[in-house]
Amino acid sequence: MLSRLSPSHYLDADVFAREQTHVFRKLWLFAAFRTALSEPNAFATRELGGLPVLLQNCEGEIRAFENLCPHRQMPLQKEAFGQARMVCPYHGWVFDPEGQVKTIPHEQRLYAYPPEERAGLCLKRYAVRVVGELVFVNLDKNPLPFDEQFTPELQQALADITSHFGAQAIHADLPARYNWKLNYENVLDYNHVPYIHPKTFQPLLREGISDARQGQPAAEAAPAQDGAELPPPPTAGLAAQSFWTRSPIRIEAWPWHGLVERYGEGDLYYNFFLYPNVNFISLGGLTFLLQQFHPVAPDRTEVRFTLCAAREKRRLAGLPAILWGHLKSEVAVLHEDLGHLEALQAALHRDAPRANHGIYEDRLTAVADTYLGLMGEERS
């Protein structure tokens, strides 16, 4: 079965620009953990859909604005995370929780805006949706209904698992030289694990990660094995492209495991696929890692890591070291993928043949159909 996508979907600047407009500025995008925004005036800054976005705790409510002062387009907040009022560092303009200009130093003497112009001086505001401890932003002026992208059942599962998040989280960004879609396709492809991760990830799997259709017609499903929950079969439609699974996994016991309120029923690997560009996983309900494949250019992706542990029963002085140790392991696994995906991207050219998918890759076909629909393209 030939891939729905041609090499140009991974190479062309024009395609990339249309993705920003039709995919990333239309869909709900993960933006931050709510724990990073729990304090008054706490903020986080992100680039989403090619736009600078500011998430700010405004009197207890998380709001999202374009991170540009309407005066001279200076970012209000320049750090990735912090705690500060919404004040432009360039000329001291102060903004209220609604994003309206509250005060302008020496306003009458230096600016003398007419009343109607003064009333329009405000930050562009974006829609926000919080699911458990995950904060999503939509950049469109008429946001897609959230349930059309993520089913209520998936939202409940996310709320349940993220309710166990601890307060501390760590972050890292890793640049990669490949198209963002290759990384999302890669996390959907369980069949690469024995070949790319034979010494890191594969030994942890007790039953292997399977979509239960290998060697079977797509309409059939094999029974779950030893606690594994299988995903629904792939179908068309936006909401169908986001789902979750769980599979048995080997987890080495550490003393700190008994000091946190873990999620779930033991040694299971929880794997959430959140279209268009997020893979959220948990090892045994003890650690939680969210990877976001942020598009930078047709052949450039920034892989954003956010990791936390389950909520502490009592304070763990060594928790930062525990988290950094886990993140180091996760980055090592990604580096194994990265080398192969960068080689794949480098070898692509406009006249290259399309990929030949096997029956187990029907999820890639479903995702590609959804992508083409968002892009306004015919299936080919």
Rank of each mutant, 00 (worst) to 15 (best):
D226W: 06
D226L: 14
D226F: 12
D226S: 15
G227Q: 06
G227N: 11
G227M: 08
G227K: 07
A228N: 07
A228F: 09
A228I: 12
A228V: 12
E229V: 15
L230P: 06
L230S: 08
P231Q: 06
P231M: 06
P232T: 13
P232E: 12
P232G: 11
P233V: 08
P233G: 05
P234Q: 00
T235F: 01
T235M: 01
T235Q: 09
T235A: 10
T235S: 10
A236G: 12
G237D: 02
L238V: 08
A240P: 04
A240Y: 03
Q241V: 11
Q241I: 09
Q241M: 07
S242M: 06
S242W: 07
F243V: 09
W244E: 11
W244A: 10
W244K: 08
T245G: 03
T245E: 08
R246H: 14
S247Y: 15
S247N: 14
P248T: 13
P248N: 09
P248Q: 07
I249A: 04
I249W: 03
R250Y: 05
R250P: 02
I251K: 01
I251T: 08
I251S: 02
I251A: 02
E252Y: 01
E252L: 06
W254D: 13
W254L: 14
P255E: 03
P255G: 05
W256F: 08
W256K: 00
W256Y: 07
H257R: 00
H257S: 00
H257G: 00
G258K: 00
L259I: 02
L259M: 10
V260I: 15
E261R: 06
E261T: 09
R262E: 03
R262M: 00
Y263H: 12
G264S: 08
E265K: 10
G266K: 04
G266S: 05
D267V: 11
D267I: 05
L268Y: 14
Y269F: 15
Y269R: 08
N271D: 14
